[in-house]
Amino acid sequence: MKTVVRLRVNGDEVEVWVPVHKTLLEVLREDLQLTGTKHGCELGECGTCTVLLDGQPVLSCLVLPIEVQGQEIVTIEGVAAGSELHALQAAFAELGAAQCGYCTPGMILTALALLRTNPAPTRQEVKEALAGNLCRCTGYLKILDAVARAAASLKDGSSYGG
């Protein structure tokens, strides 16, 4: 059974005609061409598909679009301001916190939600916030460094913070 779903994604109002059981992950990638959202399991186990829903990180592979009509969805494509990278994106790119880059969109969005509520997290707080996001490449350390650098540069106002 198909239905019309109205979504608000990265500030745009969009309308899609999709099967009711199609996940938000699939709709973003297949119907809206927002392929920056990745998947590693499609079962809620890896964090790769994380997007923000009203500022909160959610696993888009477990969300049905019909449930989130009217809510604000942010994907990795909506993080930069035009061509200016968000502080987190700049730090990830500069420090090599994205190796293969596949976990990166989910990591950045989860970290973004954290920094909005806790602009100066301790290393342990970052670890706890990101513990649901798996990365097989980096050993996580450069990611922790990147989040710390982004937090610092947002604090001193030297970079774009969304």
């Binding site: 392929t35 930069a80 990278l85 700049a90 990830f92 790119a93 090599g96 880059g101």
Partner: peptide
Amino acid sequence: IPARVDGAGKVTGLTRYADDLF
């Protein structure tokens, strides 16, 4: 120096992996 030439694509979701091709 900044670690990678592919950093910007990877942090913005622009990098196209195989399953991103439609």
